[in-house]
Design a protein around this nucleic acid. Sequence first.
DNA 1: TGTACATCAGTGAACGCGCGTTCACTGATGTAC
DNA 2: TGTACATCAGTGAACGCGCGTTCACTGATGTAC
Lengths: 214, 214
Amino acid sequence: MSLVDPISGMVKRGYHHGNLRQTLVAGCLSLIEKKGPTGFSLSEAAREAGVTPAAVYRHFEGREDLIAEAALQGYAIFADLMEHAYAGGQPSDLAAFEATGRAYLAFARKYPGHYVAMFESGISIQRTPELNAAATRAMGVLETAAVALSQHIPEHMRPPPQMFSAHIWAMSHGVVELFARGSPGTKSPFPPEDLLETGIGIYLRGLGLVAPDR
Amino acid sequence: MSLVDPISGMVKRGYHHGNLRQTLVAGCLSLIEKKGPTGFSLSEAAREAGVTPAAVYRHFEGREDLIAEAALQGYAIFADLMEHAYAGGQPSDLAAFEATGRAYLAFARKYPGHYVAMFESGISIQRTPELNAAATRAMGVLETAAVALSQHIPEHMRPPPQMFSAHIWAMSHGVVELFARGSPGTKSPFPPEDLLETGIGIYLRGLGLVAPDR
DNA sequence: TGTACATCAGTGAACGCGCGTTCACTGATGTAC
DNA sequence: TGTACATCAGTGAACGCGCGTTCACTGATGTAC
């Protein structure tokens, strides 16, 4: 139960926070987004939540565990977004595939903290079964989309679907890392969205999946 | 001058190290390779070089400056490799272009410490004019290769060369980050070299630069 | 060849800092009767 | 409705640690004469 302090106007927390676990995750994400996985410290996350560092240990096993939870939530959101974009292959295998590519970049843009926690924090996907499952589900969507789209390629020039999806994933990830963030001062004269869209377009044309001229 | 200690058999350094600057860079690179940019500490690099942390300040302004030097040397090597691979566009614009793609991955594999210092350590390319120049020279090779190859594309479906090279760079970087290192436990069933080779191949076919069927 | 001396490249002690983690504790909450 | 008590979710003090950086210093080297 929270009360409004008549003087400060702030919501009083009282002794118990009530929602500390999720507040810590949120703090972790915003710190990671601002300062990179390096810059994140358990103590600072506790400070932002208005709580003693020791309190963190009521909810997490330690620093790593907190980051892992942030990544886990990221994979869950990511998988949901990808599944929604894919939409079971509607309206067409091609359109659905392209939508997942866009969803990848949209996710990286909208949830940069999660993205970093997932791909740059150095936590292993094998850390826990839940984390592994969430990551597998997310990547599975891309692979499913690739398998479905593969059927439209003449068999003799069809690459293995895993290779197909690995290419798309690599290009998406590369665009995110190099151009969708100011990392190494790398500025491209093109918006990342355009870069990815055209890149995937050219790639798909190479597979004979879109018309050679448009 | 170094003497051999008759008891330990070790080369005696004496008071002066003689080659401390480069030894520190080498230590920085191997630490960064092993532990990521996070794991690197000036003190540990000094320890590995058999020297007091304070000695580092005779050669570098501080921790950041040491990493920047490592990155600078990386860009120089990288640019040399790329230029050598490109070989002025011989034997053909296409072959030379593909060679630069392979050189990218080869560099990442052979000089992982440099690669991390360059692309994952968070140091800005704008830090010093030399760093900027080295990075520009390296990326310039890829762009030159893209410009030359572009001439072979019918004008009406020719993308801007910068976009072209950005695509290749993104895919190369993505392959390196996701598949050429054990980062997020991501194992692809394909060797990174194959992944990049086929990826670039399909992309180039999409541009009409290689035969649609081979 | 020998000596005086400037310069270079290290030492080692000290600093303040923030970190992750532990511990015994205590205030707040929920539940059984 | 009231009370006793278990459980939960915090506190705050303390720990040891390694870090980056500074400082006055000193040993080694190179050079001029």
